[in-house]
Computed example of a mutant assay.
Amino acid sequence: MDAAAPGAGIWVETAHGRLHARSWPAPDADTARPPIVLLHDSLGCVELWRDFPGRLATATGRRVIAYDRLGFGRSDPNPGRLGPDFVLEEARGGLAAVLARFDIGDFVAFGHSIGAGMAITAAAAHPGTCRGVISESAQALVEERTLAGIRAAQRQFALPGQMARLERYHGAKAAWVLDAWTGTWLSPGWASWNLDAELRAASCPILAIHGEDDPYGCTRHPERIAALAGGPVTVRLLPGCGHVPHREQEPDVLRAVVAFLG
């Protein structure tokens, strides 16, 4: 399909399978402005962004692109397990393929949850073209609060009928998606993971949005981003907000992003 049409779908070829992506051009968009590329969370996909990409495009006057990582949503199944460097490798692999397919030079990376970590690594991996990062509900390290939230979600998905929630968006890949999240984060080998090196290498401006009531990470995460990032950081804490600010407090998120991007 035409990648320039609102919400259009397009296939992105990679060495390991096809990625599904969509594009939302803003009405009267200034094509000189770098587009925004969305990076989804651990259980997410393009469809789970819902109406937000279109509203983001309208609010910012920029083209917005979202894609399903390999193994998620409509993209092809992932042939293996996530490796210990999967956050960094996404910036070099899947994201790089999407940028090439859409012929994107300069861009802004907007990530949610682990996708925010990928947005930060994108700034480190693409220092010449990543012009800004919007980090929403980022996990910058492993903390017990995050692990407790994942264990609770794991118990919830073990109840009868709960996997249907994931199958609606990921189809037969749903079990792999859940294990990719819980199995990775709860693995002893993941305990020392953090974004410290990538943050120090990220020189572009960063907007760190975080809900004060996020069950998957306290405000230690945006504080760490602000302390370690190689470029300027704006921290926006949202009172009464949980893990999905773009859904729970969308107007506040859009205002913060518009102000950040100028």
Rank of each mutant, 00 (worst) to 15 (best):
I150M: 01
P127Y: 07
A123I: 05
L166Y: 08
G149L: 13
E136P: 02
G171A: 08
Y169D: 13
R168G: 09
E144F: 07
Y169N: 15
E143V: 06
V133W: 02
F157T: 09
T121A: 13
E136F: 05
Q139M: 14
V142D: 04
P160L: 12
M163S: 08
A153C: 11
A172M: 06
T129D: 06
A152S: 09
E167A: 06
G149Q: 10
I134K: 02
H170Y: 13
Q162N: 15
A152T: 14
A158Q: 08
C130A: 13
A138Y: 02
T146D: 00
A164S: 12
G117F: 08
P160G: 13
R165L: 15
A138Q: 15
L159C: 11
F157L: 15
Q154Y: 13
M163W: 11
I134T: 03
R131L: 06
E167C: 03
A158I: 09
I150R: 00
G149P: 05
I134M: 06
I150K: 02
G171Q: 11
A123D: 07
A116G: 13
A174G: 10
S135Y: 01
A172S: 15
A119Y: 01
A125G: 04
H126Q: 09
L141C: 12
A125F: 00
L141N: 05
H126I: 11
I120G: 00
C130L: 11
A116F: 01
T146N: 04
A116E: 01
R145M: 11
P127W: 03
T121S: 09
L159V: 12
A174V: 14
R151A: 09
T121G: 01
M163D: 14
R155D: 12
H170A: 08
P127T: 06
A123C: 10
G117A: 13
F157V: 08
L147P: 01
V133Y: 00
G149E: 11
M118A: 15
A124G: 12
R145K: 13
A175L: 09
M118P: 01
A158C: 06
E136W: 02
A148R: 08
G132L: 03
Q156M: 14
A123E: 08
E144G: 05
C130P: 00
A175V: 08
Q156N: 10
L141A: 10
K173S: 12
G149C: 07
R151G: 05
E136K: 02
Q154I: 01
Q156T: 10
G171T: 12
E143I: 10
A152V: 10
V142T: 03
E143G: 02
S135E: 01
R131Q: 15
I120F: 00
A175T: 15
Q162G: 05
A148I: 05
Y169K: 08
E143F: 04
G149H: 10
A119M: 04
Y169R: 07
A125V: 05
L166M: 15
A172H: 09
A174T: 06
I150Q: 00
V133T: 00
P160R: 07
A140H: 02
T146R: 01
Q156P: 02
G132D: 03
Q154F: 03
Q139T: 09
L166C: 13
M118Y: 04
A158H: 06
R168T: 08
C130E: 03
A172I: 06
S137I: 04
S137T: 09
A164N: 06
E143H: 07
I134V: 15
L166R: 08
G117R: 02
C130Q: 02
A152D: 11
E143W: 02
V133P: 01
S137W: 05
Y169S: 11
E144P: 05
R168A: 13
A140R: 02
